[in-house]
């Protein structure tokens, strides 16, 4: 494999909640511009890992660096350099498109002319200039999703975390969303994504499958299918996740 810039480096990450081990000795690297899929059954420890990597939670032990920052002492710097989008599209329904963008831009320290320019850029990229004064609540779901994604990218983060970004979205919108993810990754942003749609696992450069807090498999979709002698990522996933013992 050619030498790539490492963006996330995790060595022996452990996170315990009391007696419960949510993340059991995770070790992996994520490279610049990679689409890194993070799969696992409910309760396998995905959410915990994402929270640690995005600076929301302090790990129990292990060496973790995200975008060059330490996950213990530099959590604020991590937060400033990543983007995050959850399945709930955290936009304000009672604000307009423009007001939402301006608000989130402000949070990430954009102001004045830079903010204004960024808002216009974003609106024209999304082809939503016309609708900039519409309330979020009046937008179709697919638009909200794209807007939410763009807003998570407003400060041009080096990594973006997407937590089930396509849940419940119609199949056409779901695909155009993945095309958006791909173009962002092509421009050098690292994408860290979780999903319950197994076909989406195929769009990732590499995929991790977590079972019971541990990483059970980590490779490209093609190699995983080869290793487990499976026709699809769905089969690979079911094969691995069935091993889970936790309820």
């Amino acid at each position: 494999m050619e030498k790539k810039e490492i963006i996330i480096e995790v060595e022996n990450l452990v996170k315990k909640f009391g007696q419960f081990v949510a993340n059991d000795n995770l070790t992996f690297k994520v490279f610049k511009g990679e689409i890194f899929g993070f799969l696992g059954a409910n309760g396998a420890g995905k959410t915990t890992a994402i929270r640690i990597l995005s600076g929301l939670l302090e790990p129990t032990s292990g060496k973790i660096s995200v975008a060059g920052y330490n996950a213990y002492s530099q959590r604020d710097l991590i937060k400033a350099n990543i983007g995050y989008m959850s399945q709930k599209f955290s936009l304000y329904d009672d604000l307009t498109v423009r007001e939402n963008i301006r608000f989130f831009g402000g949070i990430y320290g954009l102001y004045g002319k830079i903010l204004k320019a960024r808002i216009d850029e974003l609106l024209s990229d999304l082809k939503m200039t016309e609708f900039k004064d519409d309330l979020i609540s009046s937008l179709p779901l697919g638009w909200k999703q794209r807007l939410s994604f763009s807003i998570a990218m407003i400060h041009k983060p080096v990594i973006i975390f997407l937590d089930e970004p396509t849940g419940g979205v119609d199949p056409i919108t779901r695909r155009s969303f993945w095309e958006m993810i791909h173009s962002v990754a092509n421009q050098g942003t690292t994408v860290f994504v979780t999903t319950h749609y197994m076909d989406e696992a195929e769009y990732c450069d590499r995929v991790t499958i977590m079972v019971d807090g541990r990483i059970e498999a980590l490779d490209s979709p093609a190699n995983l299918k080869k290793t487990f002698n499976a026709n699809s990522m769905d089969e690979v996933f079911v094969m691995l996740a069935r091993k889970a013992k936790s309820a």
Partner: peptide, 10 residues
């Protein structure tokens, strides 16, 4: 089955 993993869905 929304939000439920592939194994539980099956």
């Amino acid at each position: 089955t929304t939000g439920v993993d592939a194994v539980s869905r099956k």
